[in-house]
Amino acid sequence: MLATVIRNSFRPDQKMISLLRQKIQAIENKTPLSSLANLNCRKFEQFELKNIVPLGVPEVDAALPWNGFPTNGLHEIFGDTAAFGFLVVLITRLTEILSQTRHSTQVLWCQQGRDLCGQGLAQFGIDPNQIILVHGKNDREIIWAMEEGLRSSSLAAVIGKLHKIPPIASRRLHLAAEENETTGLLLRTAPSNMVRQAPTSSALTRWCVTSVPSITPAHGVGLGVPKWHLELQRCRLSAASEGKLESAGQPRSWQVEWYNETSDLSVVTDLCNRSDQSQSLWKIAN
């Protein structure tokens, strides 16, 4: 008697199994299923473009599917001190464009240490008065402050200097940025060899910026113009890439130089193969 009861209780429910099979099939074939569609997940394809801020470097802007940086999204920048510089350049571009549309140009800057130099920022072209500094005790507080900043929808940009960010947090930040049309910028301070292994986040773009030796100035003394290796590591292709080149959004890298005086970022032309003639001409001249 007892045995039958047990057997009965373990008899598979055919109805349930068929439903599960259906679900699995739906997941594998990526066909929409009513029960799955109810899951609270928005498709990236729904990403809607609002405002584009070009970096001012034609080569880099052309490589992005949006011809610049969308202001309603999260961007991630890895790297060393050069990444810091690249971030500041991005902010100057953002505030420049937003101030024209009578938009507030205040920036929320969240980080743990107190190492921002007002004079340095001012020389880069940012008014330090426009920066609200937030010091968090840990990454959690910084992420919280960033989300609050993004949701206030009255800031030009929200910057967070973080070591690690959980995927859910980055997704939340991106959604907050998208809804409130505020740019979120993540400065990731991971060691350069760890960048490739860093887990993917919901950021629209991922950059890795590292310093490279500058070209010695013509007179041979002092430091040359700062030179960075700018690498677009990841770019979430979106509907916006229609009509653009196939290559848009593909990982690429450039060598750029920063001219502080003219607030100009420009790509350094790559060396190319050429004949030995120039060398020989030099020899003749000597």
């Binding site: 510089g85 500041v88 190492d115 921002l116 130099c117 340095g120 020389q123």
Partner: peptide, 8 residues
Amino acid sequence: SRPLQLLV
């Protein structure tokens, strides 16, 4: 020129 990051 002043640096962007300054140690306290």
